[in-house]
Design a protein around this nucleic acid. Structure first.
Lengths: 240, 240
DNA sequence: ACAAAAGTGTTAGTTCTACACCCATGT
DNA sequence: ACATGGGTGTAGAACTAACACTTTTGT
């Protein structure tokens, strides 16, 4: 801005604004998050969420997208603003307000080599290390938000490849909610949404019989995304 | 912070951080929002949300609470972080990242005289004027969020006085969703939650017969706040 | 007596959950 | 032939939505 600051503005304290991303991935077995080894002080070499400062003329979501691209080489990642953290001492070095985003990526699209400079690693959520600043709290809130949202909306499809099987999908829900789901009821629910298109092809990697692949009906997915779908039985009990 | 900035930090652009509050109130008839006439440039004398800059050692939520207190004279207001807005040009005067909160207050507790310096006024939402910057967008998103959340959680009680009648409560839901609700089904739902304690006293202002007052069972309210309560029939259709 | 809002029950349809067996295939 | 995971059906319970009349009381 090249205008002179007005009185009301002039007295204010400017702060750094950062974004951090909680990146979730699913490898078919476990739900994971992507962490990096921080390359600079403070807290150099400690595990951390991937983040970065918001640039001068940069929008918040654009900053998150940029940071994700730097880390994963992926664009068009599912990205949602989680919450903004502004506790004055959260970053011991400078007053930094942090807008946290969570992201879902198809873990198989992740290009490990691209992120060598960050020493990025996937962790099972329960086995994740201690993180810097308030990042553990962010991860916890992101998990809660994901559980909340996925109980009502078909958000978890963003974690799967384009072709997936229903057992894979069920396993993903079971991971997210750390619970067992009855497969007959689950299949009935997901198919009754009309969101899935059955393919001829089968995935034989998981069993001898093989499981049919499905893909998302993109149009219906977009149309129904805001509907309450109720994938999870008794969700109340699982949201703690 | 009195340490020297590190390289990684030193190059970054500091920004102003503000909070804005979408303050909802309910007068028994209509759902309203509280707006002020902005007292300083830019956009002096235009209608605006109540807001303020985040102070040097101040937490975000504390800043929102402070601003609300300045405006209404009330403490312990229901306050929830909505979303953070950071479009680079959203404030034409200086790069300002804004953390928006929404608040619910019992409109009768509002002390009009305290806010004379802001020229605050209650507006029916549909009759609200054009607001500065991106504030109209914030109001729209807050309305959506309230509709979403109130369909599942007993949040709207925060808008009512301690004693309220079921017809008042129903009217509030009807205002929020701009819909008519069947009173028999509504009563059954709210009473079956166990959240209400019936008082002996009646409110005779609305009818000759009078309607019994109820109050919240605070313990159950806290315990059940996270449960999915489903107050609204077919909520999908109403959330647009 | 009547107007105006409060309060009360029932039924049919839908959805939810719990539950157990057969199927297809590779080895 | 058998082991492994994939896929299918049903019945009882719970919940939802649609629906209309009686009660109370101030005027």
């Amino acid at each position: 801005m090249n205008k002179p600051l007005l009185n009301k503005y002039a007295d204010q304290t400017a702060m750094l604004v950062a974004i951090d991303c909680i990146v979730f991935g699913f490898d078919g077995e476990n739900l994971k998050i992507l962490l990096i080894k921080r390359g600079f002080e403070p807290a150099k070499d400690q595990w951390s969420l991937m983040g970065g400062f918001v640039g001068k003329g940069e929008d918040l979501e654009a900053a998150a997208g940029r940071v994700l691209f730097e880390l994963t080489g992926l664009n068009n990642v599912y990205l949602e603003q989680l919450k903004t953290y502004g506790e004055p001492l959260r970053d011991p070095y400078a007053r930094t307000v942090c807008v946290a985003y969570f992201a879902f990526i198809d873990i198989k699209k992740y290009q490990n080599q691209l992120s060598d400079e960050y020493h990025a690693e996937w962790f099972q959520i329960d086995e994740a290390p201690q993180l810097i600043f308030d990042h553990n709290e962010m991860v916890e809130e992101a998990r809660k938000r994901v559980r909340y949202k996925a109980a009502l909306h078909p958000i978890l499809f963003e974690l799967l490849p384009q072709k997936f099987t229903i057992p894979q999908l069920q396993n993903l829900y079971e991971q997210v909610y750390a619970t067992r789901i009855d497969n007959r009821n689950f299949i009935r629910k997901v198919t009754s949404t009309g969101l899935l298109i059955k393919l001829q092809e089968k995935d034989k990697s998981g069993s001898k019989r093989g499981a049919f692949y499905f893909k998302l009906d993109k149009k219906k997915y977009k149309a129904k995304f805001q509907s309450f779908l109720n994938f999870i039985p008794n969700p109340d009990q699982l949201l703690g």
